[in-house]
Write a protein that binds this DNA or RNA. Sequence first.
DNA 1: TCCTAATGATACTATATAGGTATCATTTGT
DNA 2: ACAAATGATACCTATATAGTATCATTAGGA
Lengths: 136, 136
Amino acid sequence: MKLITRDTDYAVRALREIAQSKEKMVSTVYLEEKLGIPRAFLRKILQLLQKSGILDSAKGNQGGFILARPAQDILLLDIIKVFQGDVCVSECVFLKEPCSQKSCCPLRGELKKIENYALERLGAVTLKSLSANTRK
Amino acid sequence: MKLITRDTDYAVRALREIAQSKEKMVSTVYLEEKLGIPRAFLRKILQLLQKSGILDSAKGNQGGFILARPAQDILLLDIIKVFQGDVCVSECVFLKEPCSQKSCCPLRGELKKIENYALERLGAVTLKSLSANTRK
DNA sequence: TCCTAATGATACTATATAGGTATCATTTGT
DNA sequence: ACAAATGATACCTATATAGTATCATTAGGA
Ligand code: FES
Ligand code: FES
């Protein structure tokens, strides 16, 4: 059971790297070498982060990516949402076949509590705090 | 993001039905009609519950399934484990390629907290309490 | 100005997991 | 003996995850 997919995990690593960089723009090639993430996949991930407003980008020579806002304003929850949609632990397993049991389903209540807790924790973690944790 | 798969959801419904039944043995056919779960799939689910010791079964005519222990001794967590393995929200996304970052991964700490909370909640819910919730 | 290094957009492929079926053997009450 | 049930097991299909590939576009610098 995974709360975090590989996209998200890679994204966090790349973002930490970008946050810590002193360069103006950080390129995919640089990140690939530093992190060992397959380049094409990493590119897709960075493009998504750009579209969602977490990264700014520059095309052309010397181009690359940079944080669109300070690291303390980027939440782990924001990053998760880009790749995994809304955090919704209590999602009905029959979401697509309109479910007749929504109001009486014996699981929803408990799952909702867990979801709320998860949202609270994930919303409290910023990219900045994730970077601080590094020096173990 | 799903904490509960369809197997588990079906299992919970079937178990509630079995718990409430006054018959000695409850058959797959009866449950199929009552719950609208595809029979072959339901059979697989019940067989798994039997193997894992949550249900007892009887073969032959008038056979079927019955709870192996009182409803208050069957935890939601037990049921989840049968179909989804251990609840492990903080599972490393690179589980199969031994992960070099286990000790320094910036996500593990937070995910672990969420996992602990989930375990605590799910471990507190019994089949009996799930049945009680029904009469909304 | 042209070349090159970069991203943007988008389509495609591969693999794993979830969800579901099907079949035959075995058991048991009537 | 027969019918009604489960046991064991193999298989299939759809979807989601993970990853690749390609061409177009942009911008800096020799
Ligand atoms: S199955 Fe639809 S709400 Fe629980
Ligand atoms: S990626 Fe392996 S521990 Fe975080």
